[in-house]
């Protein structure tokens, strides 16, 4: 068969919002996927040059190296406060934080609740991988009951160590939050859904509709002690039941926007 007369067409390339460099993330980790989704969305919205990112403390501490975007680096947990300072000064810019579960749901719980309750017009990309990745896999506020980590070596004992925090559900109870959803990065179908949610979250900000957060269930093969494939299965089998995917808060104005 002759393939003549079919012009070459680029169907896949690096988003402009991504810096062309090798990341420090472990093989099989989904941070790279999450970065790419954010970058694609900002490019597609034409917002890349109009955006200021706030990196947090955790594995994504160097996220600013991987985006072609003006970035600042927050203290542990304080990204929503820092983003508040920037957004209030620059209400017409897109401002987002990129935070892990230890950062957001443990040390930064005060800042995230404050920002959500104020209806701060920022977007939060929240990576939940059920452990502290950067420091070597300790128990996080999101670690599942029974899950073994380096600081819960016999498995999280809920009698002594309490229960994991369901962040999206909790923040959705706040009147100030406008768009709070949970998605997952364990399959290509879910990745596509995650991208749609990220797009909606940034649209919420663009339209001045208030606080938006996308929780992304993510894998951490290195600290979970699994292969990339095993960790995707583990996420599906263990994390999804405790952290159901879904839209936890879609304000009436956001629902209008989505139509």
């Amino acid at each position: 068969m002759v393939m003549a007369d079919v012009p070459a067409k680029i169907v896949y390339e690096r988003p402009e919002a991504l810096d062309p460099r090798v990341t420090h993330y472990c093989p099989g980790c989904t941070h790279g996927v999450a970065h790419r989704l954010v970058a694609e969305v900002l490019d597609e919205m034409g917002e890349t040059g109009n955006t200021i990112g706030v990196a947090s403390v955790g594995c994504s501490v160097f996220a600013y190296n991987y985006f072609n975007i003006d970035f600042v680096e927050a203290a542990h947990g304080r990204a929503p406060a820092m983003a508040t300072g920037i957004k209030r000064v620059y209400p017409d810019r897109t401002v987002f934080t990129y935070q892990g579960d230890g950062d957001l749901a443990s040390i930064g719980m005060g800042e995230i609740v404050g920002a959500a309750s104020r209806g701060e017009g920022i977007t939060v990309i929240f990576i939940n991988n059920a452990n502290y990745g950067m420091t070597g896999g300790q128990m996080a506020p999101t670690t599942l009951p029974g899950q073994k980590t380096s600081s819960s070596p016999t498995g999280r004992d809920t009698k002594r160590q309490g229960y994991p925090i369901q962040t999206a559900e909790m923040l959705s109870t706040l009147e100030g939050s406008s768009y709070i959803v949970r998605r997952s990065l364990h399959s290509s179908r879910e990745i596509r859904r995650a991208k749609q949610a990220i797009r909606t979250a940034f649209e919420v900000q663009k339209h001045g509709l208030g606080f938006s957060l996308v929780e992304l269930l993510s894998t951490c093969p290195t600290n979970w002690g699994m292969s990339a494939a095993q960790s995707r299965d583990w996420l599906e089998e263990r994390m999804l039941p405790y952290y159901p995917l879904g839209d936890y808060k879609v304000s009436p104005a956001v629902a209008e926007l989505k139509k």
């Binding site: 600042v72 927050a74 203290a75 304080r78 406060a81 820092m82 300072g85 920037i86 209030r88 404050g114």
Partner: peptide
Amino acid sequence: PFVQAESELGAINMVYGAACTGKRV
């Protein structure tokens, strides 16, 4: 902008963010 923060920790980090824009804060 005026923001009554959730704590002094929040307030100083809002200042940190806004200071990164080079404005008087």
